[in-house]
Design a protein around this nucleic acid. Sequence first.
DNA 1: TGACAGGGGGTGT
DNA 2: ACACCCCCTGTC
Length: 311
Amino acid sequence: MTGALRPAMPAQSWSAWQPLAGQPPLVAAVLAEILDGGQTFRWTRHADETWQGIWADNVVRLSLQPDGSLLWSAPAKLASRTKQALPAYLGGGRDFRALADTLPWRSDPHLAQCLAAFPGLIIPRQPFGETLLCFLCSATKQIVQIKQMVTLLAERHGKVFAQTGEAEFHRLPTWAELAEIPEPALRACLLGFRARYIKETALYLAARPSWLEETEHLPYPAAKARLLELPGVGEKVADCVLLFGAGKLEAFPVDTWILKAMVRHYRLDGWSPAQVAHFGRTHFGPLAGLAQQYLFAWERKFGRREKPPMP
DNA sequence: TGACAGGGGGTGT
DNA sequence: ACACCCCCTGTC
């Protein structure tokens, strides 16, 4: 890969740290859960309580202050755009604290416990197409590995949108770009059998130019039905894409963590994922996806099973 | 310090 | 139910 193929781009410096208004105070563990709990895959801990994240054509650093507030910084020339994009990304203008208060925690002791354990938890609103790509990578993979795949996809196949003295920043390849990448090159990004799903989905989308954007703005049931048409997208991935990439808080993804959590805390022994999903939607209501996020965070932090005794 | 299983935020058949 | 891929992690 030669530099000559890229347009010349002047090196930039980082803007001064600026306060982020309108966020409830956070503690480090909750911020880590938001940025690195499996909702998003392009955030890295940069230093103590400082994170760097990329979405679309944005790169930003966040610094958690002792009082729970956040400061942000971006490459200087991108800073004015970041100022607009960051609040939208961190919750899309929603008051998650008020939303969480409408969940049925008053009659559900376990949910109450989860809400208390992660005050200030939010669901970032990620770009729809990128969310689809990330969760197509997620099947039977842990967060570290998903992050590796996504990083390689960006570095090898995504355009550089900014650079500073230290580094270049790549966006993720668009679906149009993904359609042009040979499947072996995708496999080389550690995708394994997911490479075929991504290639086939890319070809499907390439033949339907406005399909993604239309799907994003459809009501939840119709949007989900359409996502399920894509190769490699099943119930769980579709719900993740709609919850994290389209702000559909009624989506209730059921993965192995949630399945275990619901079985344990709601006595759903023997229930199938589909049955658990139905229970979740009816029990938690129209914001079931937000409840799911709290349950998921709680399970990751407190629910890890001790190893069974050796035979 | 290095090799070796085992299993992993599912989907499709 | 089982194949699909193959990297991380925990263990000896």
